[in-house]
Design a protein around this nucleic acid. Structure first.
Lengths: 268, 268
DNA sequence: CGAGCCTTTGATATAGGTCAAATTGGGTGG
DNA sequence: CCACCCAATTTGACCTATATCAAAGGCTCG
């Protein structure tokens, strides 16, 4: 299950500089979103040593599948992934979209086999972190242990936040929050919060927000007509952040001062 | 935030033998559902030493509240808890029901403050495990580290399972699964899987299943009329486990052999 | 024994799903 | 480079599972 997936021919444009092989967290521009966050240089170097290799995953290829046995965690180095569970109807229920610096595979720590699949949304690259070796290193490195526990804890919180917003917000509010949060995540990584590309299909968005593809399409159309977003296929530009935020936090988009609690639930 | 909540007068009947004070995991009859699972006796003894104390929590009292700062994990020793987040409408969204052996507070590891509240459903008792000391011990005890990571991983899986069944099952299926899973959990602890008491209100059940209180009531009434359960206030007896299971797994309760996938999603 | 809350039951409303069909876009082979 | 094909998306009409609103019992506890 953990063999390198051969990539047919050309490497993706943005992977040009990456030769599969040893990685180097110290030099990785996303290390502050990843396991090395907050670690001393010497500890990062030790982390480097246990990381098996980089591994390319072509678009639509699975990094791991539901039920696959667990051996490693994966840090997204480049590209985008979705994680999904299939429900009793055979549809994909998307549990998250993941970008550079995000850690994948934590769902399998509890049982030793993956609870969801991870699929590349574009040609991507991950760092493979053998879990056994990570545990050994964690034993020897207090700051790494703390950081690892923090990452696991954040995953728990992320899922609680998804439950909360799926369970209690209207479809349009969920969509608004989704668009804003994707922007926020890009912003944290140095890209524009207002203008980005949706890497996933409408179906994936629906699977994430708990909506049908038709509803997703209608909502985006409505936001566009209202002048809140500009949408060109999968390129999106947020034109009226305030209205989206007003909608997602409960006060109606007409927007005077609202009474509702200003919960800033996380999404995506 | 971590002071002992004084209990007005009588201890709950089932807590009769428990003097608040030092605990002893070795003797605790629920240790195999809890952190000590799989640990050598000597390691359990060390775990005993870091556990601060037992702490009583009266019915309706909060063990911790949303936003409270994080210092300890808590193992339920006795009684029942619910954990809940409040949504943008001010309603409680229940994220779980917890019984003896379950660990509470893991949602706070990521951020240092609690993401949900934990409320006792009856007079209860927990063991307080200071997180800092636990981390120290984890560093010195490989088996404890593995077990702790397993517990965190299971929490992640538990939440994914909740997402899955909330997002893709009909109301009646969710209810059926809920009743069966509560039974399974009691069964694992040596009690009857078919006959138990619902410790939570209809409102809490609704908050957990993503339903209104009226829907909960109607569904239970329907199950009763169909002869699948016997319901006397909060005492429930499962009379027709097969029909409930058939419903929850997708084949209609009429029940010949079904075509659907037999996903055995976890709940509660 | 009374008040208030929890629960049940009925009637009605609606958000979003389902089904169906048109349109668009992107890739691909000639 | 262009025509064509297939998949993704959009749009419309209608429907249904649950929510909402309303009111009437029952427990429980003071």
């Amino acid at each position: 299950m953990h063999t390198v997936i051969p990539i047919a021919n050309a490497a993706p444009a943005n992977a040009a500089a990456a030769k599969p092989g040893k990685v180097n967290c110290t030099l990785c521009s996303f290390n502050r979103f990843c396991l090395p966050q907050g670690l001393a240089d010497s500890d990062v170097a030790r982390l480097d040593q246990i990381i098996a290799r980089r591994r390319r995953v072509a678009r639509d290829e699975q990094l791991f599948s539901m039920g696959a046995s667990f051996g490693s965690l994966y840090a997204v180095r480049l590209g985008h992934f979705k994680t999904a569970q299939v429900n009793i109807h055979g549809e994909q229920q998307v549990t998250g979209f993941h970008m550079a610096g995000d850690l994948l595979g934590m769902d399998a720590i509890g049982s030793g086999s993956h609870n969801c699949s991870a699929t590349a949304l574009e040609d991507s690259e991950v760092c493979e972190i053998p879990f056994g070796r990570l545990q050994e290193l964690v034993m020897q490195t207090p700051t790494l242990m703390q950081q690892f526990h923090r990452v696991l804890g954040r995953e728990i919180q992320r899922e609680q936040a998804i439950m909360l917003f799926r369970g209690s917000m209207r479809a349009d509010q969920r969509m608004a929050l989704f668009l804003l949060n994707m922007g926020a995540r890009y912003s944290a990584r140095g890209y524009s919060a207002a203008s980005y590309q949706l890497r996933m299909s409408r179906e994936d968005i629906g699977g994430y927000l708990g909506l049908t593809i038709e509803s997703v399409s209608r909502l985006l159309a409505r936001f566009r007509k209202q002048g809140w977003i500009k949408l060109d296929n999968r390129d999106i530009r947020i034109l009226d952040r305030d209205s989206l935020e007003a909608l997602s936090t409960g006060r109606e988009p007409g927007a005077d001062s609202g009474a509702e609690s200003g919960a800033e639930a996380c999404a995506a």
